[in-house]
Amino acid sequence: MEIIYFAILFFTFIAGESKNLRLSSYSLIPHSLLIAISVFTLAYIGNINSLYLIAVVDVMVRAFLMPILLIILLKNRLEREVKPSITHPLSIALSIVVLSVGYNFVDTIKISIFPNVLSCFSAGFTLFIYGLFLLLSKRDTAKMIISFFIIENGIHLLIISMIPHMPKIIELALTLNFVIALFFLIYLTIRLNEILILEEIKKLRESNNIYKLEE
């Protein structure tokens, strides 16, 4: 299980720190697939039948639907992210600290504070904290959406670890909520990009007109 969690954290790091937004979005596919695999494994080990359904939903929604929507978002814009509020090397260093030290720290204290939680607790909590860090440090709207996605996945793992026998309907309704929120975020960003492009075209035309007049 540990290997799966490390792999999840690795792909989260790529999604968070890659300057190329397309690569960030693509790395969310293995990130989410691994989350689904961890849920499958937990269902199998703990003999919790309700988690199988959740894992299937995770594959469909988190591993395919959401990254596809993100790639659609990147269709008509630059693939390079807008400069973040902190420098890139510092951001990478902080990410490594949050992901590695954070994970190990949570894993150590978990036993004393929450002895009955499932093993995905530490990964879930680390994803949650890392997502918040990304949200605060990034300026690019696409990166902000990716941060939200990571936070949501963290919460998802936390719920599974703390309440594994939660009624399926609640879990499905929460996923639906997440899909709607992300859909709206992507819709707003696409419309915003369209307006920005139109404004740029207008500016360019105006400057061309001025240039012609001067000539």
């Binding site: 009955n116 949650f128 936070i151 703390m162 309440i163 709206f184 975020l185 707003l188």
Partner: peptide
């Protein structure tokens, strides 16, 4: 709208975490 949706959604996730912790 983007700011509202992002901040409120992330913020309200904390209360979801509160519910989960209380249930646990």
């Amino acid at each position: 709208g983007f700011k509202y949706l992002l901040i409120v959604n992330v913020g309200i996730l904390f209360s979801l975490l509160g519910i989960v912790l209380l249930c646990y």
